[in-house]
Amino acid sequence: MYAEDMTTVDLPGRQRAREAFSSVAPEAGAAKPDPILVADNVVRRFGGLTAVDVGHLEVQRGAITAIIGPNGAGKTTLFNLLTGFDSPNSGSWAFNGRPVEGVRSYKVARLGMVRTFQLTKALARLPVIENMRLGAVGQRGENFWRSLVPWLWRRQEQEITERADQLLARFQLDTKREDFAGSLSGGQRKLLEMARALMVQPELVMLDEPMAGVNPALKQSLLTHVKQLREDGMTVLFVEHDMDMVHDISDWVVVMGEGKIISEGSPDQVMGDPKVIDAYLGAHHDGAVKTVAGQEVEAGDTPPPQVSESEQR
């Protein structure tokens, strides 16, 4: 694979990450040398189904960690819980040592923990560049009164635009700068979403199935971008189905099954774990959609009465 062809000299971040993991035992809930995110006893139930029941999870700083698992394993739900988009029945977790359970989603993002979504959320009727500018935090012009006085925020807006243009160029979206985001292809939207998340200047980037629905050509470029994040000093946590990709880029893999963490380890260690193989084969026999009391509970469901969970409290 491409990454393996490169020398470690080109990828000092990768080198550092792999070294850090060398002393970590490949078992569920393993302690890491320098965790950026630590979660304990996170439980989320939907009716009778326990969607997530994670005893202990640590995410190593500066590494790329993948969460894999069959459909309905609770990966996306865990993402939603950690980022404040859903509230758990119980559990606690800390980001950079700071407890963040119960913190609202937008505050979690401001702390430096930014996520993307499985179903891409490009802001369709805004131009690409506006999507990007939106991502910048601490904008003076986002206050109503100051917004009426352009010269108070013009300068900052220019800086933001420059940063946005650099990112767009890096993600090869610069030609689409003025297009409505709704006119982009699925893969381009994924790129845009990732670039927009970087505008927040996060420490931890959480990508929910970044490869879903992306064509092979774009996949390679996405992979390169994800690796580059690690080289830039960011931590990446991502959910993925594509085992090739997981194997290619991740330093550490967390396997979930039926809400629990069933295994952890380096990509090679995990692939050889019989529990993992069981979980995947079992899932094939189950069929893709889990049902509880006749209700589908898979993500992407059309939701009737919905209160955005993040605003619950």
Binding site: F46, D86, F117, Q295, P305, Q306, S308
Partner: peptide, 13 residues
Amino acid sequence: RPQGILGRRVRVG
């Protein structure tokens, strides 16, 4: 209880 008495609270995302 926006979903009403007999309504079902639905998981988002």
